[in-house]
Design a protein around this nucleic acid. Structure first.
Length: 515
RNA sequence: GAUCUCGUAGCUCAGUCGGUAGAGCAUUUGACUUUUAAUCAAAGGGUCCCGGGUUCGAGCCCCGGCGGGAUCACCA
């Protein structure tokens, strides 16, 4: 391996540390009793009449962190260390860290050699000391004891910030940031914020569901029949059984089996895998929250969804008015409801309700939407909506009542022939959730699967497989229910105001690196 | 998969008309006991993504490849 000059220096420093009798990777625990952010927020001191300071708290702190900056000032030194909560400044003095009798012979090598020469940016250290404010008002730890906790052998990008908050030499190359997310997280604090928001959002959803009595469950990731969605799966092979298995594209059919089994409300944060293109809104593995609730319909689901979204916005952003790009989105319930046919009429001026396939195809051609003969009525309506209407729904809006051809798992509409009881929640011109009154008529379900099988024979590689066990479950009796799936990564993109899915996944898929 | 675009020091970036490879930070050496983008003085550091071609001469021009980003297609 070719080492850079800085890597060679650090390896030499490591050797010198060992020669000083210091273990650069000591095993003992370090007894932390304070954190950077809390110290800076809560430290108090008062200036007495004689000008001396009375320090009120944090006079015996023990912290740990990574060295992020070093400023030598002769026989003193300043460092910034970073712990999980942020950075704090350290103040170190040569004579206070010396060995031996202050009145007689003293050994200053700990400060002169270890601290000034052998410690580098990136090293983990633990320090003990007391907190004070410097002349310039910076809350700092006056260090009385320092211990090297772990030596770093590679130089970190050094990102600097001035008093006005201008950032210099930021570590910005997306390829390096995604491949070395650990470095990204160390030097770009706002990246950490995004991921903390993601965790907060998921916790908020979990709380919303749990307090209403929903049950969190786990269902198979490896499936013999990849069902519940129209997508190309990843395929793998099980050696002991000598069978092909698929990574799940959805967990819908398993959650519905659980409703058959007698649970009334189940949910799962499902990692799904789809063998399709990648771009700034698609990663091969992604997270969907699905939940299914017995004895409910899609009207109930709309109300539940808007309540949940309102809570999630409050919990993750502190407000229902969320800034996304240059827009402010209001997640205050209730949300607008528009049927897909009304939406098309509103944005094309054409009423397509009641039109047959030929009529729809003419409308598409007139509006310069590419069509081909494989497209049925449902697909044509879907094209009209996604080409002409979808992008206009910036504020959260429920688009309802889709054509039956697009929705093989959805119950037919109670009053509108040819449509199903389905909605998608559109936010910022994109779909973030998809929900139905679920189909629970096993004979209708079997026919819908058979239609999918015909599509597959015609070469549609995204058509659904027939899942005979799922049909058997439904034949045992499935209660009426409503179900929904939320694209969690896309919700995080909204609430964290990020334009790329790679910014909300710790380790987005990349081409393998060649070493 | 298609098109456009980028790849130069550890990081962020300059590099003119094709003529000896540059800066800031980081690193090394020295000064400085309340600094904070610390400062001051000096020094070292390069497979210019890889492979071909044109040329007396290529970081720069041409061809091919690898990797990233953006747009589009498919999808959530």
């Amino acid at each position: 391996m070719q080492l850079s000059e800085q890597e060679i220096v650090r390896r030499e420093n490591l050797q010198k540390i060992r020669e000083m009798g210091i273990d650069p990777y000591p095993p003992e625990a370090w007894p932390i009793n304070a954190y950077a952010a809390a110290i800076k927020a809560n430290y108090q001191e008062e200036v007495l009449e004689d000008g001396t300071k009375n320090r009120l708290n944090y006079q015996d702190v023990c912290v740990a962190g990574r060295i992020m900056a070093q400023r030598e000032a002769g026989k003193a030194m300043f460092m910034n260390i970073q712990d999980s909560t942020g950075q704090i400044q350290l103040y170190l003095r040569r004579n206070e860290l010396a060995a031996g009798d202050p009145a007689g012979e003293q050994d200053f090598s700990f400060f002169d050699v270890l601290i000034k020469k052998l410690l580098d940016i990136g090293d983990f250290i633990g320090v003990k000391g007391y907190v004070f404010n410097t002349k310039t008002g910076e809350t700092s730890i006056h260090v009385t004891e320092l211990k090297l906790l772990a030596k770093a052998l590679r130089p970190l990008p050094v990102v600097k910030k001035d008093a006005e908050g201008n950032v210099f030499d930021a570590f910005t190359d997306p390829e390096l940031r995604y491949r070395m997310r650990y470095v990204d997280l160390i030097v770009n604090p706002e990246v950490k914020e995004t991921f903390l928001k993601r965790t907060k959002m998921i916790a908020s959803i979990r709380q919303f569901l749990n307090e209403r009595g929903a049950l969190e469950v786990d269902t198979p990731v490896l499936q013999a029949i990849p069902g519940g969605a129209a997508a190309r799966p990843f395929i793998t092979h099980h050696n002991a059984l000598d069978i092909p298995l698929y990574l799940r594209i959805a967990n819908e059919l398993y959650l519905k089996r659980l409703i058959v089994g007698g649970f009334e409300w189940v949910y799962e944060f499902s990692r799904n895998f789809r063998n399709e293109g990648m771009d700034r809104t698609h990663n091969p593995e992604f997270t969907v929250l699905e939940f299914y609730t017995a004895y409910k319909d899609y009207f109930w689901m709309m109300e539940t969804t808007e309540k949940m979204m309102e809570k999630v916005a409050l919990d993750t952003c502190g407000t229902t008015d969320v800034q996304v790009g240059d827009k402010v989105l209001s997640f205050k319930a209730p949300f607008k409801r528009v049927s897909i046919l009304e939406a098309i009429q509103e944005h094309t001026g054409i009423d397509v309700s009641g039109m047959d396939e030929a009529g729809l195809r003419d409308v598409c051609k007139k509006l310069h939407i590419a069509v081909d003969n494989s497209m049925g009525k449902g697909k044509l309506i879907d094209e009209l909506f996604s080409e002409k209407a979808e992008k206009h729904y910036i504020q959260p809006t429920f688009i309802t009542d889709y054509p039956v051809e697009m929705s093989p798992l959805t119950k037919r509409h109670r009053s509108k022939p040819g449509l199903v009881e389905r909605f998608e929640l559109m936010v910022n011109g994109k779909e973030v959730a998809n929900a139905y009154t679920e189909l629970n008529d096993p004979i209708d379900q079997r026919e819908r699967f058979e239609e999918q099988a015909r599509l597959m024979e015609r070469g549609d590689d995204e058509a659904m497989f027939i899942d005979h066990d799922f049909l058997r479950a439904m034949e045992y009796g499935m209660p009426p229910m409503s179900g929904i799936g939320f694209g969690i990564d896309r919700l995080v993109m909204l609430f964290a105001n990020q334009a790329s899915i790679q910014e909300v996944l710790f380790f987005p898929q990349m081409r393998p690196e060649v070493f």
